[in-house]
Write a protein that binds this DNA or RNA. Structure first.
Lengths: 152, 152
DNA sequence: ATTGCTGCAAAACGTTTGCACCTAT
DNA sequence: ATAGGTGCAAACGTTTTGCAGCAAT
């Protein structure tokens, strides 16, 4: 187990929800926390397969959902119809800017955003669950974009 | 043609982009503008089929993309991995609150939000293309939720 | 011993593509 | 005449499901 503290959180969550504690689930946890940046379920599955893991695709999908439920991961959606995850372990709340040219994702923080959801929900009679704020944009200086090669 | 004005915008867009002006495309435009609320491409295709239209699924997907390009429709994504559209014809800029229980989508406007993307992009060296701000929430008073029947 | 989880493969879902035919220009 | 659009069906990529065997409690 690479991250003992996260493993403990997950173990507790599984136990409380009467979910079984299995080696496969912790294997997925490890791989997910080690993944740099944002990843899709299948990305992680393929990575684990190249590392000779024996977990199945179903287990990966399944476990990522559980990890999102206990807030070790955050589920994201950047408008391309696939679910992406990112580690939420000891990370700060942030939002995303996605370059529509090269697909690069930049994380940013802005204090003004945080209070808006509760304000709106108060007016409309809802309780906030979560929110997503994505900005789609283009690099001002294309030539200096080090991700230029990824452009469509 | 139900909406002559929108049709004229579309016709001009098609002409300028050297796209052909076909009856099928205007059939899709009509159906899309008449659709109440947010719809997926397949929803619209199925609706049109029940109304004896002869357009194909491919043409619907295709045309919705064109309609989004010329801003008659807006593309939305509410985190369920399907692309949704809504009419943008003579509508004001707004954002969305999605009930995580019943799926209801409430539109809201807040002047604070609009300026954030350009502010962030200025700091990070990007030009704003668009943004999406979605709030996920639950009705405070479940019993009075008239969409209760749709709850999962 | 029981229940839930796993791996596998197949199905499902929304979306895209290839192709032969057709039509707007 | 011809580039481009259409309808159809088949392919695609992501995600979910059914099922038999297995393992955590």
């Amino acid at each position: 187990m690479k991250n003992q503290q996260a493993a403990e959180v997950f173990r507790k969550f599984l136990k409380d929800g009467k979910n079984r504690i299995t080696p496969e689930r912790f294997e997925v946890l490890d791989a997910a926390l080690e993944y740099e940046g944002h990843f899709g379920a299948d990305d992680l599955y393929i990575l684990m397969k190249t590392q000779q893991s024996r977990v199945s695709r179903a287990t990966v999908y399944n476990t990522l959902e559980l990890l999102a439920q206990c807030d070790l991961l955050i589920k994201r959606n950047f408008g391309d119809n696939t679910t992406r995850y990112e580690s939420n372990f000891k990370k700060q709340v942030h939002d995303h800017l996605i370059c529509v040219d090269c697909g690069r994702i930049v994380e940013f923080m802005n204090p003004k955003i945080k209070q808006i959801p509760s304000e709106i929900c108060g007016e409309l009679g809802f309780d906030v669950e979560s929110y997503s704020f994505n900005i789609f944009a283009r690099c001002k200086d294309i030539k200096n974009c080090k991700y230029y090669k990824n452009r469509k």
